[in-house]
Write a protein that binds this DNA or RNA. Structure first.
Length: 277
DNA sequence: GCCCAGGGATGCG
DNA sequence: CGCATCCATGGG
């Protein structure tokens, strides 16, 4: 994809491969603010970017342009990915709908915490909890707050996370932080997808689906297919009646292989947006 | 009051 | 193993 970086701005002319609405609302990330159709703010770790439209281009403005160049995975060619997936099927409508989706490369600790909170929860409440955690424990960054360090997260008790609205996941979070040390998440990145998945599942609050989300949105492993309630509904609608999510996952990974993660995002976004109306 | 949300942990056979 | 049940909480 064509883009250029000058000073603190990344300028993207090709909206067919970069649409903030699609990127932020496809369920992979929770810490962003939609000011309006043409204006977003996104928070990642201790970094902030503002996105706005100018002369038919999208501008990503930040003090850390190189961080967000990686975060938005700008060097990847999504036209190629979409063409490959078109060949295989009924994905056409979903790809046309979410044409500007990109899979983000998010901070590992933040992704882990976010998706532990996401279990059997809804997106609005997940967002609210994460903003609360940032505000109470994170370093102040002007108008917003950084995601807290592991040390900060370890310094509070179950009551804090109940106060954050995480419900019964509060005790899972406290156990989780005690299982981690400062660099463990990054150190595991050399593992194969399968070994990394097994390790993630050993963590408190992490099962198969949450592990797949961390693998995809944090570790950039695209050979996984997170199956949640929406994907389950979609699968039953388009393929066959099946209520075992492990089987659904195995079938979809067998079908899409290393492209699974991309296929999943188009389908999740399409199914969920259609269901809103 | 009931059902659902980007499910996981636990116990039981 | 597979399966059932329970788990907080806010919104529709």
């Amino acid at each position: 994809m064509k883009y250029k970086i000058c000073d603190n701005k990344i300028i993207i002319a090709d909206e067919s491969q970069f649409c903030p609405q699609h990127i932020f609302e496809c369920g992979q990330v929770f810490s962003y603010i939609k000011h309006n159709e043409d204006h977003y703010t996104v928070l990642s770790k201790d970094k902030i970017a503002t996105l706005y439209k100018q002369d038919d281009c999208w501008v990503i403005e930040s003090h850390s342009p190189e961080y967000f160049e990686n975060y938005f995975d700008l060097t990847r060619d999504y036209t190629k990915i979409k063409n490959q997936l078109q060949d295989s099927s009924f994905l056409t409508n979903a790809i046309d709908y979410g044409y500007g989706i990109r899979i983000l490369k998010q901070d590992l600790l933040e992704t882990l915490v976010s998706f532990v909170i996401s279990a059997n929860n809804n997106i609005k409440r997940i967002q609210k909890s994460l903003f609360y955690i940032r505000e109470k424990l994170g370093e102040r960054l002007g108008e917003y707050y950084a995601f807290p360090t592991l040390e900060k997260l370890k310094s509070v008790s179950v009551d804090f996370f109940v106060g954050a609205g995480t419900g019964y996941r509060a005790s899972q979070l406290v156990k989780l932080f005690n299982q981690l040390d400062e660099n463990i998440l990054a150190e595991k990145a050399y593992l194969s997808t399968q070994d990394l998945r097994n390790w993630l599942i050993s963590l408190s609050g992490v099962g198969g689906k949450v592990a797949d989300c961390i693998l995809l949105f944090g570790y950039a492993r695209t050979d996984v297919f997170p199956v949640d309630t929406w994907i389950e509904q979609m699968y039953n609608e388009f393929f066959e009646k099946e209520n075992n999510r492990v089987k659904i996952r195995d079938n979809l990974v067998a079908k899409y292989g290393g492209m699974s993660g991309f296929a999943q995002q188009y389908l999740f976004y399409y199914k969920r947006e259609k269901n809103k109306k």
